[in-house]
Nucleic acid binder design. Structure first.
Lengths: 341, 341
DNA sequence: TTGTAAGCGTTATCAG
DNA sequence: CTGATAACGCTTACAA
């Protein structure tokens, strides 16, 4: 075949007898273009297999065709799910995903993200909780002209910049279900302080109790950190009390697995002696024994929605779905809940 | 407090009274540079907070400062672990991670990866199993001048391009342990065909049996696909036999969790009625009940090693560790193994 | 509707 | 050792 050098915009221009600017117009779907010219150039592009050089475009446009996933999330399943959702939307487009973990504890968090964004000049970023709750990061994106979408458990921003879930509401539902099943002494393992998801879920929990005529018992709310071990420790604590809860709501599945573990250690049967409900519906929920009653958090779909928002207005734009701003979680009943003895 | 435009190489050149080429030399640590000039320029760079524009560099160098993670891996924990390892090495360097899932079933796999690499002009890529076993991809990288490292369960390439684990060996150890514990009827749930890890583990399994004077029983080797459900189905199959195995080696933890599930469904106690061993030591292994005896596969460390190899010879190069080519897995004893009744 | 010239911010070439 | 000058491949004025 011809030389092995990839064709550039100049080659296309020469081959189709137009200027490079015209080729550029074709590439960028400029509306003011003679349909005939467009077709001619398009044909040459197709024949040569020409692909615009993203590096050159990035330099000229001062903007890359990259979507960033910025996070400091202790929940592996969540990160992976969001990634999967974003990637599925990016697939077939000219955009790629770049993953950037950060340290939310660092005092230089905002500065770190700033230098990352300034250097990479991303098309846009997806901010995962808990750093998505940091308004400073949002204004930073605004300042730098970088599109952004924040994911979280409550609406922290306008619909164009937010993909939220209704955690508080669904937890109310969960706890109501527990009460309907006959439980009156219900414990909660909360998420770590500073997490909006943690406080939303905790609030939903308390609201449901109060609505059911039960006064939340401070001793039955134990703090966890979304990790297995913290669920284990919290549950030992909860079950050491007298009287002890007959049901526990863990603010995520990993901690729920820890709760199950703790119950087993004490020789308790789940759900006969203790009912447990988790949150997330990650793989572990269906895989442990007994299968865990939990809340399905549509994290992959939320990732897709985030990507769609970021791509809105571009050539690769996908239609935004109705409800792309608020996602509804749902109770998944499995086998870890039963009436108290 | 000057204008808010970021300084460019021209600014630095002007401010330090040298040419831009000299600044470029400083940036790139050119050895032929007057130490005094270097220092002067360096000072200006530090004062202004100048950061070279990666897009411009990418264009001029025809190469990006990006590391690609190319995979089609059904094992979420593995992908995440590798990612974590790579990112930890990339942290603080000028390199970023770009994630690219591909479809290993597609007939256009190689072509897809080719266009990805040609477009993005990555510094290097990490190939995860099972596509890492595709020699066509390796030659493609060579052809395109893209550094690459293949990860896998056997040494498929030279040490510079390979990060391998000793699956076969460790599985021999695992099965020997089972035999030592008293088991003679041992089943295996294999990985899917076409996976080197699957065949390596299966071979190790058979070798150990033979070495222990046991003839592998074909009916006790059931195929799985590394997913929970397949472990469930395979185990139902295994336990339906008469006589049935007293122990099962599952080729990964997810399938081992499925095995546990199946045992529970049938009212069997683990480990009293059935011993189970998994592989990977992913989070689920320690979190299910009983805690799963498994093999620790140092996947995060392997990811780090892969990144180190890719960065070797660059400014950001980290010392390569001894043993960066072959990683040793180890048996982790927990509570899912006991002598047969 | 299309083309020309001038960048975008860096590195390579090749003199000095 | 250092510096003009020309790429790198594309886009944005601004004309025509």
């Amino acid at each position: 075949m011809s030389g092995n050098a990839k064709p550039t915009i100049n080659d296309i221009a020469r081959l189709s007898g137009v200027s490079k600017k015209t080729v550029s117009r074709v590439i960028n779907r400029s509306p003011l273009l003679n349909e005939e010219t467009r077709k001619r150039v398009d044909d040459v592009i197709r024949q040569t297999g020409y692909i615009p050089n993203p590096q050159a475009r990035a330099l000229a446009l001062r903007r890359n065709f990259l979507i960033g996933l910025v996070h400091d999330n202790p929940n592996a399943q969540m990160v992976l799910g969001v990634q999967q959702g974003i990637l599925s939307v990016l697939k077939g487009t000219e955009y790629e995903l770049i993953v950037r973990p950060v340290d939310r504890g660092s005092t230089t968090l905002v500065a770190d993200v700033r230098s990352f964004l300034e250097r990479q000049r991303l098309h846009g970023v997806v901010l995962l909780p808990p750093i998505s709750e940091n308004d400073g990061l949002a204004s930073l994106c605004l300042e730098l002209g970088c599109r952004y979408v924040r994911m979280g458990s409550a609406e922290l921003d306008d619909a164009a910049h937010m993909v939220a879930s209704n955690d508080r509401e669904v937890v109310r539902e969960v706890v109501t279900f527990l009460m309907t099943t006959g439980h009156r002494r219900i414990g909660i393992i909360t998420g770590p302080p500073g997490f909006r998801s943690a406080s939303e879920r905790h609030h939903g929990f308390n609201e449901a109790l109060v609505a059911g005529g039960i006064t939340p018992e401070p001793a039955w709310a134990v703090e966890g950190n979304y990790r297995f071990e913290s669920g284990l420790v919290a549950t030992r604590n909860l079950l050491a009390q007298d009287p002890r809860p007959t049901a526990i709501f863990a603010s995520n599945d990993e901690m729920a697995a820890g709760a199950l573990h703790a119950a087993r250690e004490m020789g308790l049967d789940v759900p006969a002696d203790l009912s447990i409900i988790g949150f997330d519906d990650t793989a572990i929920a269906a895989h442990i024994w007994p299968p865990l009653t939990t809340v399905r958090w549509p994290i992959v779909e939320m990732g897709k929605a985030a990507a769609r928002k970021l791509l809105a207005g571009t050539i690769d734009a996908l239609p935004e779905m109705p409800g792309d701003a608020l996602f509804l979680s749902a109770l998944i009943q499995r086998a870890s809940v039963a009436p108290p003895r």
